[in-house]
Amino acid sequence: MELLQLAVGGLANGCIYGLVALGFVMIYKASEGVNFAQGDMMMLGAFVALGLGNGDHLGLPFVLAVPLAMAVMFCVGWGVERVVVRRIFGQPQFALVILTIAMGFVFRFVAGAVFGYTPLVMETPYGGQNLNLGGVVIGYADLIAIAVTIVLTVALWAFFAFTRIGLAAQAASQNQLAAYIVGVPVMRVNSLIWGLSGAVATVAGVLYASRGAIDPNIGLLGIKAFAAAVIGGLGSLPGALLGGLIVGLVEPIAGRYAPGEVAQMSPYILMLVVLLTRPSGLISQVQMKKV
């Protein structure tokens, strides 16, 4: 029973890791770059939603505040691509890595300057309510996190697999020049994907905030989500979710049966093992080129 209780909490946690990992994977799918500021975008999204929805700030109703925050973060992601990322177009990957790490610090500073560094709690209509299923207590927040994640993953997967823009984004990531030649507006597609990943990050942020307090440093969760994305296989959306769930489940169980430091290490040990045995992740996207 105790294990089941841990598993439910872990699943909900894992869904949030998975959602942040989805943001990584989307940008990786579209431009083969890694956005290390994804965790900080999640943090910023949560704070925007909090600023719009909480009673002591703007006080909009929750159902209005969240879509509005998503729209704001779409614009932030889109703007970041337009203003900064576009300028290093075509430069080696690690330039983007360093750039996004620096951007993450800027986001953190902005959030800290506006909202301060004391943890804040977001007001949600379902906060603090629990469901009791024969001894296992499940918070509504956990249930909603799991449901929303599954819906979003399927929707994004369909977007990349079936829509014109999704296919164009995949083409752009495999060979920018070739994509240009066949008429893909690579720059526009990139902007759109960055915007979308901002919106997804907001959803993750809101789900995270509804399960506990937030402060500007929760963006560091992005590193863990990144481990999840690598475990699942960078470039695979279902893989990101799978990786997130694995990390989410392993963490509390390791914490239960081993010292706390081991629990902290477990996602990264798992990631190293996956990198060593299956370098391209559980759901592999690397293919040998056929000549």
Partner: peptide
């Protein structure tokens, strides 16, 4: 490329926790 950067990040976190252990 990117995978090595990630692996070193993981090593860093592991070393940090090992120091405490």
């Amino acid at each position: 490329g990117i995978y090595l950067a990630i692996a070193t990040l993981a090593v860093f976190v592991i070393v940090e926790e090992l120091v405490i252990l």
